[in-house]
Design a protein around this nucleic acid. Structure first.
Lengths: 245, 245
DNA sequence: GTATGATTAAAACGAACGTTTGAACTGCGG
DNA sequence: CCGCAGTTCAAACGTTCGTTTTAATCATAC
C-alpha cells in the first residue's frame, strides 16, 4: 500500500509512472474498480494524461499487460530454444519443460523490487476474467508460447494423448496462478500461516511434476462424474435442485 | 447469454429471480462491472427491488454466495462425516479426502440445470478477488470445512508436514478453480478443443492425486527460487530490471 | 526572440452509477 | 367497505464515471 506513493514526482516519464501505478491499482481493485482519477491522482499526473498517452482506459490496461507479458513470453521462448538446442533433438525431460514455462513466471512473481510480483497477481486473476477485449489480446500474447510448449510437452511425455497434455497444462496454470495471486487467501483460510513464501517455488514444482506425471485416468463412461464414483454426480448432484425449491 | 431471459415473469418470487440473474451477471461481468439496472432489467423487476429485498448491492452479492456456499460446504461436511464413520477411526485414503472435498464442487460445476455451473465459475474468480468485504465472508464460510479437511488430509498423509499439506491444498484449489472457470480460456488458448468437458473430472482427479502424493521437495536454501536451479532467480530474474530501464 | 510541436493543466461534458423517496398497488382479516 | 402490512412502481437524488475541450506551459530549432 505504501510501496509507490503519489508524491514521487521524480524525473521519470509520465507515461511510465502511469503504467506503474495502474499496474498496482488494477491488481488491487480490478479493472472496473479502478478509476482514472485514482490512477492519475496517485501517479501525480493530470487526469487527462491517460487519455493523451494511451487513448482509453482499456488501452492503458492492455499496455500494462503488454509491457510485462512481452518480456515474460520472450523469456520463455528463449529458455526453450536454449534447452532444445542443448538436447540436440532428443526430447526434453518434463521437469525441464516445466522449468522453462513456469520458471520465468516464478522469477517474476518473486521479484518485488520491480513490480513483477504485483503484475503476476494481476495476471493470475485476469486470465479467467470474462471481459471480451481482455480475452482477445491474451490469446494473441500467449498463442506462440502455448503451441511451442505443448509440443515440447508432447515429446517429453510420449504415449500421453495431446488432449490430456492440454488439460494438465491448464490445471498447472491454475495451481501456479493460485500459488502466486492467492498467498494471502491461503493465510486467510488457514489462519496465521507461519511459513516462508520464498519456499513456495520448490513446493509448487514438486506438486506440478507429480500431477503432470500422474497415471492416466480411466475415461470409461461419458457420464462418469468422478472416478471413485459414489460421491460425484450419482448421489450428490440431485440435492442441488432440491435445495432451491 | 440466452439461458435466463428477462421476460420470464413466471410465478417465482422476485427475491429468487434476482438471485438467479445476479449470479449469472456477476459471473459474466464481475461485481463492479454489473449494474443494478442490468440485474433488475434482466430479471424483469423494478430497479428498487434489490435495495428493498437485500439492502445494498454488496449484500446481494453476499446473498448469492451464501445460498450456494452454504449447501456446498454442508455437503462436504456430511460426506466427510459419513466416510470417517465408516472408517471407524482409521485414516482415510487421500483419494477419499479429495473426493469429499472436490466431489461436491465438481458435481455442482457440472450441474447446468440449476445454475451450479455458473456459480462455480463465479466462485473460482472471486476466491482471489481483492475486495475487502468479499475476503471477509469467504473466510467465515470456509473456515469449518478447511480445518476439518486439512485435519483429515494430515491423517491420510502421515509424515507430510502440515505446512506442506496446506500448500498442496491451496495448489489443488487453484487447479480445480481453473478447471471449472476457465474451460473457455483453455479453448481460447489451445485453439478449437475438441474434447468432451464431461471427461474433465476424472482427468482432474488423476492430476490432483498425482500432485498431492508427489515426493516432498528439498527445501534447501531459503533463496533457492526453483529446485532445478539455473532458470529460476539466478539467471532470469535480473533481466526484469533491465527491461524496464 | 519567436514560431512550432509536444505535453500538461483546469474545467466541463453527458452518461451511468447506487440509493432513496413517496405514492400506487396487492391480497386479506376485520 | 375499510384499514393495513407487504410489495412494487416511477421518478428523482447526489455522486462518480471516462472522455473531451480549450488554454497554458514547455522544449527546441530557426
Amino acid at each position: 500500500m505504501a510501496a509507490l506513493t503519489g508524491e514521487s514526482r521524480s524525473g521519470g516519464d509520465t507515461r511510465e509512472r502511469i503504467l506503474d501505478v495502474a499496474e498496482e491499482l488494477f491488481t488491487e481493485h480490478g479493472f472496473e474498480g479502478t478509476s482514472m482519477r485514482l490512477i492519475t491522482g496517485q501517479a501525480g499526473v493530470n487526469l487527462a494524461a491517460v487519455n493523451y498517452h494511451f487513448g482509453t482506459k482499456e488501452a492503458l490496461f492492455q499496455a500494462v499487460f503488454h509491457r510485462r507479458l512481452f518480456q515474460l513470453n520472450r523469456m520463455r521462448l528463449e529458455v526453450l530454444d536454449r534447452m532444445e538446442q542443448e538436447a540436440q533433438g532428443a526430447p526434453l525431460k518434463p521437469s525441464q519443460v516445466l522449468e522453462g514455462f513456469f520458471g520465468p513466471v516464478l522469477a517474476m512473481a518473486t521479484d518485488t523490487r520491480h513490480g513483477g510480483h504485483t503484475f503476476m497477481r494481476l495476471l493470475g486473476r485476469t486470465y479467467t476474467e470474462p471481459a471480451q477485449f481482455i480475452r482477445k489480446f491474451m490469446a494473441e500474447e500467449f498463442s506462440d508460447v502455448i503451441s511451442r510448449y505443448s509440443d515440447a510437452l508432447r515429446r517429453a511425455l510420449p504415449g500421453v494423448p495431446l488432449a490430456e497434455i492440454m488439460w494438465r497444462l491448464h490445471f498447472m496454470m491454475g495451481a501456479v496462478s493460485y500459488a502466486i495471486s492467492g498467498i494471502d487467501a491461503l493465510q486467510l483460510v488457514s489462519g496465521r500461516f507461519d511459513d516462508d513464501p520464498a519456499l513456495m517455488a520448490p513446493r509448487l514444482m514438486s506438486f506440478l511434476l507429480g500431477g503432470l506425471r500422474a497415471p492416466l485416468p480411466e475415461l470409461i463412461s461419458p457420464h462418469a462424474q468422478f472416478p471413485t464414483g459414489d460421491v460425484g454426480g450419482g448421489v450428490l448432484a440431485p440435492d442441488f435442485g432440491a435445495a432451491r425449491a
